[in-house]
């Protein structure tokens, strides 16, 4: 990290207060860095204005890769490299290849999609977490506002806006 950034941190304890608060705070023109919650709060991402994820498309593409790989592998091995008469069937009995093709599709789709998720969100074994307040893994919703990115509002303004919108304790300043 090049330099420390200054954040104002507001703490909420009820999702039904948090969601309207996010809406109003954003309406005031304050840019929210992120909100840290102990559990997935439904629709918080849409309130924060995040775009819908494209992980579904990634999963589909990985799945299609898996299908193609399996079909190519099986047909090469049993159809061309070493054709064998098995049960009097064709050398490429398509129905018999469906199970393995299906499994390969699911495997590669699942692993690829989860891998994409971990990489894109910077998660991995031994990665350091940036915690504004450890209670965000227990029972508090923690909203962080980057002061450097909110030049239009003074620090006091932001604190006041947070207080108007139902924070349960005095917002504090955190340097990271």
């Amino acid at each position: 990290m090049a330099e420390t950034k200054k954040y104002i941190v507001g703490v909420f304890d009820d999702e039904d207060v948090l969601l309207p608060a996010v809406k109003k705070i954003r309406a005031e023109g304050v840019q929210i860095h992120d909100v840290y919650t102990p559990y997935p709060v439904h629709h918080l991402d849409t309130y924060l204005g995040y775009k819908r994820t494209r992980l579904g498309k990634a999963a589909f593409l990985f799945g299609a890769t898996g299908t193609t790989l399996a079909i190519t592998m099986i047909s090469y091995m049993l159809g061309f490299d070493w054709p064998m008469d098995i049960g009097g069937k064709d050398f490429l009995p398509a129905p018999n290849f469906v199970p393995v093709t299906f499994e390969s599709t699911v495997l590669i789709s699942a692993l690829g999609m989860v891998g994409t998720f971990l990489v894109s969100r910077g998660l991995g074994p031994g990665k350091k977490a940036t915690m504004f307040d450890p209670r965000s893994t227990d029972d508090k919703h923690v909203m962080a506002i980057n002061l450097d990115k909110n030049t239009k509002h003074s620090k006091e303004d932001i604190v006041a806006i947070l207080k108007q919108n139902g924070v349960t304790e005095e917002p504090k300043e955190v340097d990271l």
């Binding site: 909100v35 840290y36 991402d45 992980l55 989860v114 971990l118 977490a129 915690m131 965000s136």
Partner: peptide
């Protein structure tokens, strides 16, 4: 180490829920 640097950010949670849903659809 095991917790992969999880911080509970709203964006991560949103993606996480999508991951769970797609994994459920695949599983």
């Amino acid at each position: 180490i095991l917790s992969f640097g999880w911080d509970g950010s709203a964006k991560t949670w949103a993606r996480y829920e999508e991951v769970a849903l797609i994994l459920a659809g695949l599983s």
